[in-house]
Design a binder for these strands. Structure first.
Lengths: 251, 251
DNA sequence: ACGGACGTTGCACACTGCGCAACGCACCTG
DNA sequence: CAGGTGCGTTGCGCAGTGTGCAACGTCCGT
């Protein structure tokens, strides 16, 4: 749509592969050297391109700063909201979005079920680390060393007979969650509540959030809830794609 | 130098602060909406800009991918080489560049002293983790949990009386190195060799490499070597700036 | 049903970005 | 040391490209 901008933007992926001189850039773009020079100068003025001591060009610090700033100012909650609503409508159950921050997992958004039976969750409230599906999804993505350190640090309250009993079992459970890419809590926190969760991944592949569908056992059995798993996972992936700025359309 | 490219590039920092609609972008650039639209379309075609379901624009995945690829293909060794040479010339001693990769710290570059006495290091050879200055610099930057896990995993050979004896002492030493931003090895590996090292930081502030100056005790005492510390640290910072693509000039 | 805000399209003008050719400079090479 | 080659840099005249304008379409909220 805009020739010169088009060309300038094509320079960046080129330089991402490694440093290049003016001639190389001009050749790759199939333009005259003077043209390439102007483009590089403009990019340089904005800090997107860095000139090495040897005269060759590399990507500049601005690009890293931009990417970092963009991630910082990105609100998963805002991006996820429409997806959560769709998921709640499709399943008819309560949907949660949770984040992990300094040794706690907290709900940051929630769409209530249309059934009269409500759950006890509250936005902003910490989630039981050892049993909740979202907590397991979020913690499973930590580096192994941090996972072990955390597992040794936390308590293991026996909410129900199905609660995770100790650090060893917890780490095994996290390993499983990590491998299969989703988590379930079938009566681990309260006997009568089932829940399945899936990870939302950011641009670098790390898990940035988790979403889950919860329902009282009186309404759906564990097996029935697990049938929703593909939908839950697809939704989580869609949120991740949107959050990362991939693809085209929304929900 | 190039008006349209100039304007297009000015869009990115704008969007990094958060999503914006067409009108906002046009206003910020002080151009007509149609002009802003063309620029955004071009940026979108290249994937640098993502269109949200609500029609507003955000930075796109391409930017993150670029930043990641650039970091991947960046060779610290190549960037550091001229700095290492300068440092070796200025001090007259042996200079090393080391990286940390899966439980090992290895020398990836070396500039020999001009003194006849040489050291036993070799490029590509693993460095003793518990004593070498570069190892301490690199490991001190790990997250606390990984540091603890690693400290528990490795051996503590008693090369000399000054060698780090156990995990507890090692962790204390790493904490010190982390706080002060440099490390020393005064006869910890071999009685007769002293060494000071400093971290090279990447665009995200994480330590990506370490460089050090080593000299036989017969040539310089520990105190004399420590006088070189400011120079070593400044050099490491300069490498980091260049590596991150900041500032303008080389060594 | 109406008004406003927002994104989108087509068009004609002129300014901007283009390629060309010549220059300056550093580095080899005979 | 003269000649040659590869690099980045500069000035210039032409036209192609990007521009602002005005009008249209569409989706809101009132």
């Amino acid at each position: 749509m805009s020739q010169s901008v088009d060309r300038a933007l094509a320079v960046l992926p080129l330089l991402a592969r490694g440093p290049a001189g003016l001639g190389e850039v001009a050749d790759a773009l199939a333009v005259h050297k003077s043209t390439a020079l102007r483009l590089l100068r403009t990019l340089h003025a904005h800090g997107y391109v860095h000139r090495q001591p040897d005269g060759r060009y590399r990507l500049g610090a601005r690009l890293f700063a931009l990417a970092a700033e963009a991630v910082e100012n990105l609100d998963v909650k805002e991006v996820a909201q429409p997806y959560l609503r769709d998921l709640a409508r499709a399943t008819g159950h309560t949907v949660h979005l949770a984040l992990h921050q300094d040794d706690e997992v907290v709900y940051v958004d929630k769409v209530d079920s249309r059934y009269p039976v409500r759950l006890y969750s509250r936005i902003g409230r910490p989630v039981p680390l050892t049993v909740a599906a979202v907590a397991k999804v979020l913690l499973a993505d930590l580096p192994e060393a941090e996972r072990r350190a955390l597992a040794a640090r936390i308590d293991y309250p026996r909410w129900t007979a199905r609660s995770t009993p100790d650090a060893e079992a917890f780490l095994r459970e996290l390993e499983l969650v990590r491998a299969q890419g989703w988590a379930a809590d079938l009566g681990g926190h309260e006997e009568s509540v089932n829940c399945v969760g899936a990870p939302v991944r950011g641009p670098d592949g790390r898990v940035v959030a988790a979403l889950s569908v919860s329902a009282p056992a009186a309404v759906v059995t564990g097996e029935e809830l697990l049938e929703l798993l593909p939908l839950v996972r697809r939704t989580a992936e869609a949120v991740g794609r949107d959050y990362s700025g991939e693809g085209e359309e929304g929900p």
